[in-house]
């Protein structure tokens, strides 16, 4: 396409935005509202994901080895655990190491356990991780049935609940976002359709004198693009400033619980890119949809 033609399309698209002021406003608002909600959901979902995956990483099965097990029995147990298909890794931690860990993790208060060093009441432990964290329960069940596995612990109950929660919120978020996107596209295609009805004659004449469909489509394509881009400005400003304050406020509090959320930079820039892209796509799609039937030869 010639540069001159492209300039014409750009000019026409802006003219049309101006001429149909209220329709433009309505379409831009539809994009804005959608993107704000999508943006908020997206930020929450991504952070949930982040938290979830750090927690998932930490989910481990602690297999307490029966104190009566001899060196050889331990080896057999280890082999059997390694053979379970869901198991990714297995590590041995002696009861001395276990006690040290316990004392360390309790800090000052841990010192009261010092005397136990002579007569250690803890067990040797295999620390097992599942290939897929959600298979932890399955793997744990299988290990339970093995000989010399005295106790199997993996935060029973709470882990299942956590996984359920994470999965449900992921799915709900996804469905909501997709639903919202379609609503916005529908709204835009309808608002632009009204403006096209007004431009029906123009399109009719263009076709009559031999303009190609591509030529006719371009201004509408650009118009949709501008609507999408305009509609993404406010959501980006809102979401990023909200995240700025939320991060400042939450980050230290959560750090106390060893929970990390996504850092402002680069996360907010990624969100901004996503919102711009989505805005553009919604706008263009809505615009193209609305003029489909007017282009039939």
């Amino acid at each position: 396409m010639k540069a001159r033609t492209f300039r014409r399309h750009v000019r026409e698209s802006f003219k049309s935005l101006g001429r149909n002021g209220w329709m433009t406003f309505a379409s831009v608002s539809a994009v804005t509202v959608t993107l704000i909600i999508v943006g908020v959901f997206f930020v929450i979902m991504m952070n949930l994901n982040k938290v979830a995956s750090t927690i998932e990483e930490d989910v481990e099965i602690r297999v307490h080895i029966d104190p009566v097990a001899k060196q050889q029995d331990q080896q057999v147990l280890r082999k059997k655990i390694e053979q379970i298909p869901e198991v990714k890794s297995i590590e041995f931690s002696s009861k001395e190491e276990e006690l040290d860990n316990l004392i360390d993790s309790l800090g000052e208060e841990g010192k009261v356990f010092k005397p136990f060093e002579q007569d250690n009441p803890l067990n040797d432990v295999f620390i097992v991780k599942a290939k897929n964290p959600t298979d932890t329960m399955k793997a744990a069940k299988k290990i339970e049935n093995l000989e010399y596995a005295a106790k199997v612990k993996y935060g029973q109950g709470s882990v299942e609940k956590l996984f359920k929660f994470i999965e449900t919120s992921r799915n709900v978020g996804l469905v909501l976002i997709i639903g919202l996107l379609f609503t916005a596209m529908f709204l835009i295609s309808n608002t632009i359709k009204i403006t096209i009805v007004a431009r029906r004659r123009e399109i009719e004449i263009m076709k009559l004198v031999g303009a190609t469909n591509t030529f006719i489509r371009w201004p509408f394509f650009l118009e949709g693009l501008w609507i999408g881009l305009l509609g993404s400005i406010l959501p980006i400003a809102l979401v990023s400033s909200a995240y700025y304050y939320a991060y400042d406020y939450l980050e230290p509090k959560l750090a106390n619980h060893f929970i990390k959320i996504l850092e402002f930079n680069p996360f907010v820039y990624q969100v901004a890119c996503l919102l711009i892209l989505m805005g553009a796509l919604i706008g263009i799609w809505g615009s193209m949809m609305s003029m489909r039937k007017f282009l039939k030869v």
């Binding site: 001159r4 004449i205 263009m206 004198v209 006719i216």
Partner: peptide
């Protein structure tokens, strides 16, 4: 007639050439 009411006489006629990308 099928003229575009917001365009001048000149523009209405030029329209037919613009949309087929004739040189200005």
């Amino acid at each position: 007639f099928k003229l575009l009411p917001t365009l001048t006489v000149f523009e209405n006629v030029a329209f037919a050439l613009e949309v087929i990308e004739e040189q200005p």
